[in-house]
């Protein structure tokens, strides 16, 4: 039921995003009259709406998968790419490129975001090996957010107007700034990570029994940790580079999935989280696009936080009730 529902919803959302936008496309005359596509319409469909839809799907699926992996690894429901400082790491990288003007261009921004989030994750991994407690690790992530936020503020104070504006817009998050190449890259990255996570499904299940027990059952913990660090780092870095720091999806989607299904095996959680994440991202993008009449629409992160915040609280409240 959930599978069918998510697939139907996903299909509807994809077609709606391709069909509607600020510029109306003559679908009727294409299909009924067999009229040829004008080059401008072709451009809108293939170079604007297609990549935007694909990027939203890849980012939604990728960040949600990332949240699921981190929540299982840390055994903590509050873990996620933005909570642990991974997004801030990516932000720091981009801030260095955009604000401090160390380099330019799309490749540089992407590389900086990937490196930044990777560095943050390695730092977290190092700390995770030192302190066993999950709570101290989350506090570490929080502090990392503060410190990196402070450094970014300093960079902002020093930056010129144009760079500052570029960075502020980047921070609002969007699925609409990516190129066709970016869409392909994120698509391949997310599919690769999904495949990697799928291959780890048994290890992830075993990990819920505790790290020692999982290892005694044959999980190679070093490889397990590194696989998660690399997948999360690349996903968060790549997605953050293209879309900016996307709020809430990584944290909220796995919870929504656990609410929708009683299954807890990762063989089910992994694909379902990806599909539900893609759905949520496309839904949120309707919120962004829907605010017509405004030049830029509502910022993605505003829409996501307005949906995501209450949702997480709702999940927490209902979960607490059932636990009593």
């Amino acid at each position: 039921m959930i599978w069918l529902g998510s697939f139907v919803l996903l299909t509807l959302l994809v077609f709606s995003h391709l069909a509607w936008g600020t510029v109306p496309l003559p679908w009727r005359s294409w299909f009924l009259d067999g009229a040829p596509m004008e080059s401008m319409h072709k451009l809108i469909l293939w170079d604007v709406r297609m990549p935007r839809t694909a990027i939203a799907m890849a980012a939604g699926a990728g960040l949600s998968l990332c949240g699921l992996l981190l929540q299982t690894w840390f055994g903590n429901p509050l873990a996620g790419p933005s909570v642990l400082g991974v997004s801030s790491g990516a932000g720091m990288g981009v801030a260095l490129v955009v604000l401090a003007g160390m380099a330019g261009g799309w490749m540089a921004t992407t590389a900086a975001a990937v490196l930044g989030s990777g560095a943050a994750l390695v730092l977290i991994l190092f700390v995770a090996n030192r302190f066993r407690g999950a709570a101290s690790l989350l506090i570490f992530g929080l502090m990392l957010n503060y410190v990196l936020g402070a450094l970014i503020t300093v960079l902002q104070a020093e930056a010129d107007q144009a760079a500052l504006q570029q960075f502020v817009f980047w921070g609002m998050g969007t699925f609409g700034q990516g190129t066709v190449e970016a869409a392909w890259s994120l698509g391949i990255l997310t599919c690769g990570a999904l495949l990697g996570a799928w291959m780890m499904r048994r290890d992830l299940d075993a990990w819920t029994l505790g790290a020692l027990t999982a290892r005694s059952m044959g999980v190679n913990d070093r490889r397990f940790r590194w696989a998660i660090v690399w997948m999360s780092g690349l996903l968060t870095g790549g997605i953050t580079a293209v879309c900016g720091p996307v709020a809430f999806l990584g944290l909220a989607t796995p919870h929504l999935v656990r609410l929708l299904t009683r299954e807890r095996r990762h063989a089910v959680l992994i694909p379902l989280t990806a599909i539900v994440g893609a759905n949520l991202a496309l839904l949120a993008d309707w919120g962004v696009k829907g605010m017509l009449g405004m030049e830029h629409g509502w910022p993605l992160n505003a829409v996501l936080s307005l949906i995501g915040g209450p949702m997480v609280v709702w999940v927490l409240v209902t979960k607490t009730k059932s636990a009593v």
């Binding site: 819920t208 029994l209 005694s216």
Partner: peptide, 24 residues
């Protein structure tokens, strides 16, 4: 031995029962 081969020779039960796993 690599972890998966070791797991075929020795099994282990820890002192802490798994309290958070939602697996059946």
């Amino acid at each position: 031995l690599p972890a998966n081969e070791r797991a075929q020779r020795v099994a282990f039960v820890s002192s802490v029962p798994p309290r958070t796993s939602e697996l059946r």
